[in-house]
């Protein structure tokens, strides 16, 4: 490569980056700490969310990806989109401390009991307010894991989408994504604006710095209700959920196994066990 070309390419690239400052919306979910065992509310059969909520670790990858894409574009903005009860912002503050610029939080009592489709309707309407070039989401949440919300949001917004991204490069109004497949991965090209869902491990999420944590306290969080978003209460929450839980049953427990403390000889028991199973 001749030096002249390199610097010319850099200059063109630099100008282009300035022109293509990117606005990225990232869907983030605030969930009960997965380290605490979950429980269902007896009456409503919903996951209990009465403790302080934290940022779903799955979403930290999307936040990091967004920060890196905005950086690579030479400027722009990362807007967090979240729906949570009781004006919860604890998880949002974590993502803001990582470097996101602002957040839109939808909090409304009418949203209790919302299923994935209802949730997608709310998030899509909130994202629309931000008018982003790119929408990022995790492939699924760690607590509900329906894994359908990102694609439902894309369809509601009339956007193309690429799910299960393991890398994203944005340039010239398109994204090039390596998309996870059963056998390996596909290269997928998609024009902006679009939605991309990212797998855990797509990037290494940064830890919030002390400065970031302090700065996050004063970053704007725009709290809105479903009325602000023009959403009818009948289409979300319990009223909008087109499914009903008919039973929650204990699964048959596995019989307790044989547990041995290793004192240097336990491997022999594995060998004899594998022998009994005719594996060896």
């Amino acid at each position: 490569m001749v030096e002249f070309h390199t610097s010319l390419a850099w200059e063109i690239g630099h100008k282009r980056r300035k022109l293509t400052a990117m606005k990225v919306a990232v869907c983030v979910k605030q969930i009960p700490d997965p380290a605490d065992p979950g429980a269902l509310d007896e009456a409503t059969k919903c996951l209990k969310r009465d403790t302080k909520l934290i940022l779903d670790e799955s979403d930290s990858y999307g936040v990091e990806m967004a920060l890196q894409l905005v950086d690579a574009a030479g400027g722009g903005e990362v807007v967090l989109i979240s729906m949570a009860p009781n004006s919860e912002v604890n998880g949002l503050r974590t993502a803001l401390a990582m470097g996101a610029d602002q957040a839109i939080l939808v909090s409304d009592d009418a949203l209790a009991g919302s299923d994935a489709l209802g949730t997608a309707k709310v998030l899509a309407a909130a994202i629309q307010r931000a008018e982003p070039d790119l929408v990022l989401a995790a492939t699924e949440s760690s607590d509900g894991y329906t894994g359908t919300v990102p694609e439902q949001i894309a369809e509601l917004m009339g956007l193309p989408s690429v799910t299960f991204a393991k890398s994203i490069v944005a340039a010239d109004g398109t994204v090039n994504v390596q998309r996870q497949t059963e056998a390996g991965y596909d290269d997928v090209t998609c024009p902006l604006p679009c939605l991309v869902s990212v797998t855990a491990g797509v990037v290494e999420p940064r830890y919030p710095s002390f400065k970031g944590i302090m700065a996050a306290k004063s970053k704007p969080v725009d709290e809105v209700t479903i009325a602000d978003l023009g959403i009818d209460a009948g289409s979300v929450g319990w009223a909008g959920a087109g499914q009903e839980i008919v039973a929650v049953e204990e699964a048959p427990a596995r019989e307790a196994g044989e547990i041995i403390e290793d004192e240097g000889e336990a491997y022999q028991r594995i060998v004899s066990f594998l022998d009994e199973l005719k594996v060896i």
């Binding site: 997608a120 894994g147 359908t148 059963e182």
Partner: peptide, 24 residues
């Protein structure tokens, strides 16, 4: 099926039919 391609189909179809998906 809960596959990479299957979830795309289920999510898009759910919106088009305005019907939920029962998952997992």
């Amino acid at each position: 099926g809960t596959t990479y391609g299957g979830r795309d189909v289920a999510g898009r179809l759910s919106v088009k039919l305005d019907a939920p998906v029962i998952t997992n």
